[in-house]
Simulated assay, not measured.
Amino acid sequence: MIKVNEYFDGQVKSLAYRSEAGKSTVGVIEAGDFEFGTSEHEIMTIVEGELEVLLPGAQEWQSFGQGQKFEVPANASFKVKSKGQTAYLCQYR
């Protein structure tokens, strides 16, 4: 079953699904600054576009573009900045 998720007044939308690899979401982030919280370990892969990311405990922002990934531990928060629409794949492990 595919589940539709919407956050930040529709500025972030994703589709959640399950496969043999586990639970994942694919989505799009509009331009803006956002803070997300995790309940599970997340592996984020940028499909298209670019995100500036402030990972938990980090002092400096990092840039991630198409094909690059970053990980966020469970029960943490992280911030992102997007200058335009950015597509992503988030895998939960």
Rank of each mutant, 00 (worst) to 15 (best):
G84I: 07
M1N: 07
A74Y: 04
E6Q: 14
E6H: 11
L54W: 03
Q11N: 15
G67Y: 02
E60K: 05
P56I: 09
E52I: 09
V47Q: 12
G27W: 00
Q11S: 14
G10E: 10
Q66D: 11
V28M: 07
K13A: 11
C90Q: 01
S63C: 11
S19Y: 01
E48L: 13
Q11C: 14
V80I: 05
V72S: 02
L89P: 00
W61F: 15
V53I: 07
G37L: 12
V47H: 05
L54A: 06
E40H: 14
S14W: 01
Q91F: 10
A76T: 07
Y17H: 04
F70K: 00
E71N: 03
I46W: 02
E20I: 03
E50G: 04
V80C: 00
T25N: 06
Y7L: 15
A21E: 10
D33F: 10
Q59G: 10
C90T: 01
M1D: 10
R93V: 13
C90V: 04
E30Q: 14
E35T: 09
G84R: 12
G27N: 01
R93W: 07
D9Y: 08
E6W: 05
F78N: 01
G57F: 06
N5R: 14
V72H: 01
Q66V: 09
E20S: 12
L51H: 00
Q59V: 06
A31Y: 03
K81T: 11
E50Y: 02
G22S: 08
A21V: 06
A21M: 05
Q85G: 13
L15Q: 10
F64V: 02
Y88Q: 05
Y17I: 06
V12E: 10
F34D: 00
Y88D: 02
I43T: 12
E35I: 02
G49A: 06
F70T: 00
Q91P: 01
Q68E: 15
A21Y: 05
E48W: 08
L89S: 02
F34P: 00
S24E: 11
K23Y: 09
V4D: 09
E20A: 11
T25A: 08
N5T: 05
Q85D: 13
G67M: 04
A74G: 06
L55G: 09
A58M: 08
N5V: 03
G37S: 15
K81F: 06
N5S: 12
T25C: 04
A74D: 10
E35P: 02
A58T: 01
S77Q: 10
F36I: 02
Y7D: 04
Q68G: 05
D9P: 02
S63E: 05
E50D: 06
A31D: 03
L54Q: 08
T38W: 04
E40C: 15
A74V: 12
Y17P: 03
S39F: 13
Q62W: 05
G22T: 08
G84E: 15
V72L: 05
Q66K: 13
N75E: 04
F8R: 07
L51E: 00
V80T: 00
F78E: 01
D9A: 15
T38N: 03
E52G: 12
K79Y: 01
